[in-house]
């Protein structure tokens, strides 16, 4: 009789602990979707910051200097990155299409830019950052 009493108590205690555990597991699984998206966002952000830095460096070195850039993450077929330098707002705009979702980031540049575009795909992950002189001023541009 005593044995049966103890096991009944124990069963209910286990039930309550399980309930909490199930709740925690549920919360953890719902977090995975978020983390996957944040991982892609961080990749795009990292790339945009390093590109901005390299553009500033190319400008600092001056005329005739070219730097080869390689997108540091893997791209599947159908995924693409479009890099656009905008001279009027002096900003670097990166549009990424990764896993069917699109990501956009705008970075403001401290150095003058020339309007130029480059599109990266899984077969072509590299491009050049170079300079151009027009009207006696030095501008930075991207080219395939």
């Amino acid at each position: 009789m005593r044995k049966a009493q103890v096991s009944l108590d124990l069963l209910f205690a286990i039930l309550l602990i399980l309930l909490t555990l199930v709740n925690l597991t549920y919360l953890a699984t719902s977090e995975t979707a978020h983390s996957e998206m944040f991982s892609t966002i961080s990749e795009v952000k990292t790339f945009s910051i390093s590109l901005r830095d390299h553009i500033t460096k190319v400008y600092a070195v001056g005329e005739g200097f070219k730097k080869k850039e390689v997108f540091p993450f893997n791209l599947e077929s159908g995924e693409s990155i479009r890099i656009h330098l905008n001279s009027s707002s002096n900003s670097i705009i990166i549009n990424a299409t990764i896993d069917g979702k699109s990501y956009t980031i705008t970075q403001r540049s401290d150095v003058p830019l020339k309007d130029s575009n480059v599109t990266l795909t899984n077969s072509k992950r590299e491009f050049w950052v170079s300079t151009e002189i027009s009207g006696g001023m030095l501008y930075v541009k991207v080219e395939p």
């Binding site: 709740n23 919360l27 998206m37 944040f38 966002i41 699109s102 990501y103 956009t104 980031i105």
Partner: peptide
């Protein structure tokens, strides 16, 4: 506790997204 945890997690995701500055279509 569940309700508060869900909402807290979600609100901090919104903050992270705004701080990160990358727009997504998702």
């Amino acid at each position: 506790v569940s309700v508060v945890t869900y909402i807290r997690a979600s609100a901090s995701h919104a903050c992270d997204y705004l701080n990160m500055g990358v727009q997504t279509s998702e």
